[in-house]
């Protein structure tokens, strides 16, 4: 029993960077923009949070910086894909490459440096005593609680506010939204920016809370898993929780299974094998429930077409 609680308790922090990134990417894709730069924005978030925390000893300042850096990188993608209407796949990939390279360069002097300060677990009085789920859910660090709240907020705004209707409409049909007087570009810029902020936060969580350390290329494909979770969650924030913790759990299992003599190479493959499985499952569910990706995903919007 304690072993299970221990694994599940470790699952949540392991899944949190994915959850943060996926919530953001869900909004981005709901607005009709595809941002493949999640990996790049995450790792830039990770290094900027780590750097600023090392310099100032203030973890929260580091986390805030990662949000600004992630959002700033996303704006480059937004400018490319919304204003210039370039190919979104290429622009996103470029962002990933840029992020991986730049973070390695900036991070040279931080390799092996210990973080002066870290976020401590903050058990919530009362709730943590609930049997079984208490220690799993409510004996975590503050950023995990923030991620719970953000999941609710992202879900609530998407389905129960005017902004949510506008965001979903822009991604389904920018023509319709435009003719209803919605500023399509503004909504898309905002969504892409939010996506960047969230990816940055996800990266920060990795380097200043989860690890806490700076290792070059430490996101190790998490940005791509975020994209898979976005599809698996059928573009619904509340479902992103399951996908993220599933992959978090797999990551925890990787460590827990090592003592049993299973080849670490095999274990390292696990998340990606699961990525393929999850995408297959999602494809099945998508066809069964007749849901689809936002109809205009990845297609640039031009208002005035020639005759």
């Amino acid at each position: 029993m304690n072993f299970i609680i221990e694994i599940l308790k470790a699952t949540i922090p392991a899944g949190t960077p994915l959850l943060l990134g996926a919530l953001g990417e869900i909004y981005v894709e709901r607005s009709g923009i595809l941002n493949l730069g999640v990996e790049g924005m995450m790792i830039m978030g990770a290094i900027s949070a780590f750097g600023i925390t090392t310099m100032t000893s203030n973890v929260w300042l580091g986390i805030l910086t990662s949000a600004v850096v992630g959002g700033g990188m996303a704006l480059v993608h937004a400018f490319n894909s919304i204003t210039l209407k370039t190919n979104q796949t290429l622009s996103g990939l470029a962002l990933t490459m840029l992020g991986l390279g730049l973070s390695g360069l900036i991070g040279k002097k931080y390799v092996g440096v210990p973080l002066p300060n870290k976020l401590h677990n903050f058990p919530i009085y009362g709730l943590k005593n609930i049997p079984f789920i208490g220690p799993i859910l409510f004996d975590q660090d503050p950023l995990v609680y923030v991620s719970y709240a953000l999941t609710f907020i992202f879900w609530f705004f998407l389905f129960n506010t005017r902004f949510g209707i506008e965001l979903r409409s822009v991604g389904e049909s920018p023509e319709v939204a435009d003719s209803a007087g919605i500023d399509v570009s503004k909504i898309q810029y905002l969504a892409v920016f939010i996506g960047g902020v969230m990816a940055g936060l996800g990266g920060a969580y990795l380097s200043v809370v989860y690890a806490p350390a700076w290792i070059e290329g430490m996101t190790a494909g998490m940005g791509w898993i975020v994209l898979a979770i976005t599809i698996f969650s059928l573009w619904r924030p509340e479902r992103a929780i399951f996908g993220s913790y599933l992959f978090g759990g797999i990551r925890v299992l990787q460590y827990k299974l090592q003592p049993f003599g299973i080849s670490p190479n095999l274990l390292n493959m696990l998340p990606f094998i699961f990525t393929i499985l999850v995408l297959m499952l999602a494809a099945k569910e998508i066809s069964r429930k007749r849901i689809s990706a936002p109809s205009s995903l990845g297609i640039p919007y031009f208002r005035e077409k020639l005759l």
Partner: peptide, 8 residues
Amino acid sequence: NFKLIQSH
């Protein structure tokens, strides 16, 4: 062509 969002 109606300006409606089919899935909404």
